[in-house]
Amino acid sequence: MPRLRLGRALAALSGVLIIVTLAALWVGYKPLDLAALRTDETARMVFFRLRLPRVVMAGMIGASLAMVGAALQALFRNPLAEPLTLGVSGGAALGASVAIALGLGAKVAGLPMVFILAFVGAGVAVLIVYHLARTASGAVVLPGALLLAGVVLNLISAAGVVVIQYFTDYTRALQILRWMIGSLDVVGFDLVWRMLIFLVPGWMILLWMARDLHLLAVDEETAASLGVNVQRSERMVYAAASLIVGVTVAVGGTIGFVGLIVPHAVRLLFGEDVRIVVPCSFVLGAAFLMVADAIARTVLGAGELPVGAITALAGGPVFLWLLRRQQRYSAM
């Protein structure tokens, strides 16, 4: 029965998450020294102000992206949908670049402009992709058109970012460049709290919508006949996805394919039930990005790879493999 499956899956994945968290806290430029942590003020500061918040941040972003991926796949009935392939990350990146070019410090109601404009950019991208991929009668989302529209939106956004870099002054152009490479560098928990203001509502919405997404993943008309308010569900998921992707991109840059690999792994492990896939993607996504970030932090020794490069190197081939498999089921 599904409830038992969800319980078992969450228990198993939480175990994985705990082990991964401990490992991620352990590894780094210098492995964790428990004795020093008790006596040495500097070691304590490095751990509590740098490493711990960074691992938490990686977990939050990974969980968010994976859950959004699972939700978008169900909503569009397309296993290749995720923030990057739908152009949502691109839109958010363009929004964030505009904010940086306008001056990083600006805040509205205590929230960084970067968050807000990235959210707007992500939201606009979702709406554009969705409208392009619907047929004239509005009944069917064309899977091929959806992904093509996403790719083109990413290209347009990337071009937009380049143009902005040319028009803004040298230091801000450099800031945009630095930020685009993407990093989960963080000092203290300030940023984490501020992100949670956006992320927690997004997470709640997606968990709340899991049942409707399950029905939508089977068939849109059937879902409607079973009492799902399709339009409202779509809007809620768009809003949540835009919030989540906007904030994660504004902080960590474009980190692609987490939303593709993780839900897919969950489906292979625990089946197709979206009510299981959504929460499990959240937990496994956290573990996944912690691992990717730990690799990014340690593989070069003193230096650091952008975590987005790791996820793309791992996720790109998975996307291609899924694409190949997908063609068995439906003509693009």
Binding site: D219, T222, G227, R267
Partner: peptide, 21 residues
């Protein structure tokens, strides 16, 4: 709508899922 779904069941021409439920 959910009460309606207990009384009226509708079967569309095609069911579009791509997931192996």
């Amino acid at each position: 709508p959910r009460s309606r779904a207990k009384r009226i069941a509708y079967v569309p021409q095609t069911v579009s899922t791509v997931f192996p439920f």
